[in-house]
Design a protein around this nucleic acid. Structure first.
Lengths: 337, 337
DNA sequence: TTGTAGGCGTTATCAA
DNA sequence: TTGATAACGCCTACAA
């Protein structure tokens, strides 16, 4: 069954292809008889005609595709974000090409090249640590790049996501208000912006409240469950435990809990644990995690909207949007008073 | 910065575009001087030329895109599967368009239409219950369709996934061998093939072993955590509990565990629980789930390979591949002997 | 208000 | 062994 082309429509409607093209593109500049327009519209519907996007590209040099580059699509945070992106994109007639960098810098670079070849009109980037250099390559080709969830070390690309410092500030403050004084922190990977921001917020509140930051209570993780579990084991080996531990993300927090429980410690009676993200796992785990909810789906929608506004060169090109987050008072921390 | 075209290459190499085209497509039918070929190849590399895929489509009428339609990309099983699909696809120069049906039949139909407009060369379908009718529409357009993980009620489309009956057979048999006799079952949604197959396998083993299937021990769920939790509550309200409960997937199994624990029951001391899937959550939960591992990533790779073989009309067009699964002996069931 | 014609970058057919 | 040329389906400047 051959595809319907603009010629089929033109023939059936008894007009030239130009007229059909104008109707299907809703060309308002040219005036045309209402009757003609309606007739063409009817035939378009009858034949179920849609312009061939590849042919259209030839003239317009616009692909109608945007690229999304994430570290790991099987991380639910990112898959939710992608759902948000797709939602907005399809509504606006854009398709989405997703690239999973597999947490590898190598693949990330490779995909930047692929996206260029795909002639995407814009890129949404959540980097696992790519250098600015490579990203600049995109902007040099006049392809707008918006960062989602994770900022880059340098450069001032538009960004949509939460304010990690503020989030951490709120969470740490909440623990302090509950009565916790000796609070440890499990850091995330140093090349990821959210990780460093969250650590910074923690430090800031601790200092503001004149609380001592014990070096032994600071550990390094990489955002995986496993690294949380290992850090948890390190914690229980200390001669004296902190009263609570904040992990830079939920997955590590769950890992910590598992390690602590294995040693017979009870959460939150013996020690409090908190994380960031409020990933679905966080409420399925027992005890439910105290955490900061980051609205992945909404971030996806916002970042797509902003990218499209850049692509379409709308006058108000928004640069950055900090999303509201929400403190989830789970069961993994309790009032000490 | 303008894109390099075939003309730029031709000019720089001092040959015609035809020659460049032949080199870049590795046309083996036509013989050409080795020297010419090498020169062109060098220029292609120098200029970093890649054929414009949109222009190429115009001639070939092949988009180089395959479509993937899943019920929910934020379900880790599907996102892992997608990773497998993308892995193979990119290796073969194909891009992937992902459609998230959001577990809705309505959207599923809509996306079938979109995929047709996108002129995908093939479709990988994991249906949340679409009618055969709609899928036939695709095959009528000569677009190959391969089912992943979930079969359709009717029609004999190629399929890649596990054998739900067999999986369930193995799991149930394992419980029986442990000494369990009164085994309940929480069913999944009736329109999903894996759910009905797993129930069938359970029934079969129970009957073969002359074990009574107590109607009160059969409940209906919909694959969500919530439905597992609710079913768990129904179970504890029974005057007499079964010795073990099998849920048609892991998420529901975890829900059951949560409900049972809330009533003070201990797993596996008081009652055993098992599921299907071995999703990452299953090993993060306590106790670790007894379950059947379904290799999502490998299913993705296999289904992509098979789809590509159909697209390329290779001689050996594989129809179906049943993937090996693995019994995970977790801690949520124990030997009663 | 509507139509004609040229060209976007590529590949395939035919000719040289 | 290589090259000229006609499509592929659409959009748009220009013509009518």
């Amino acid at each position: 069954m051959r595809k319907v082309t603009i010629i089929d429509v033109a023939r059936k409607a008894g007009v030239s292809l130009t007229t059909v093209s104008r109707v299907s593109n809703n060309d308002t500049k040219k005036h045309m008889r209402k009757e003609t327009k309606e007739r063409v519209l009817r035939v378009i519907k009858e034949l179920d005609y849609t312009p061939n996007k590849y042919a259209r590209f030839m003239k317009r040099q616009k692909s109608g595709v945007i690229g999304v580059l994430v570290p790991d699509i099987s991380d639910q945070f990112f898959s939710l974000m992608i759902r948000g992106i797709e939602n907005i994109s399809y509504q606006n007639g854009y398709s989405v090409v997703i690239c999973d960098a597999d947490n590898s810098l190598e693949k990330e670079k490779k995909y930047i090249r692929i996206l260029l070849k795909e002639m995407v009109e814009g890129v949404i980037l959540t980097s696992s640590g790519i250098e600015n250099e490579k990203v600049k390559k995109l902007t040099k080709e006049r392809i707008p790049v918006i960062l989602a969830d994770r900022k880059l070390k340098t450069g001032d690309f538009p960004y949509v996501g939460s304010d990690g410092v503020k989030d951490s500030y709120i969470l740490t403050k909440y623990l302090i208000d509950l009565g916790y004084k000796e609070i440890g922190f499990l850091k995330g990977p140093s090349e990821v912006a959210t990780a460093t921001e969250r650590f910074k917020g923690y430090i800031r509140v601790m200092e503001q409240n004149k609380l001592i930051i014990n070096e032994n209570y600071l550990k390094q993780g990489d955002y995986t469950f496993q690294s949380g579990y290992l850090a948890g084991k390190e914690f229980v080996n200390l001669t004296k435990l902190p009263q609570a531990i904040i992990a830079a993300n939920d997955l590590m927090a769950v890992g910590i809990i598992r390690a602590l429980e294995e040693k017979g410690l009870r959460i939150p009676q013996d020690i409090g644990v908190a994380g960031f993200g409020n990933i679905p796992l966080s409420s399925l785990v027992k005890p439910k995690l105290t955490t900061i909810e980051i609205p992945a789906y909404d971030i996806g929608r916002e970042v797509a909207l902003i990218l499209l506004s850049h692509i379409k060169r709308k006058r108000k090109r928004i640069k950055t949007k900090i999303m509201d987050t929400k403190l989830i008072k789970g069961e993994s921390c309790k009032s000490l008073k």
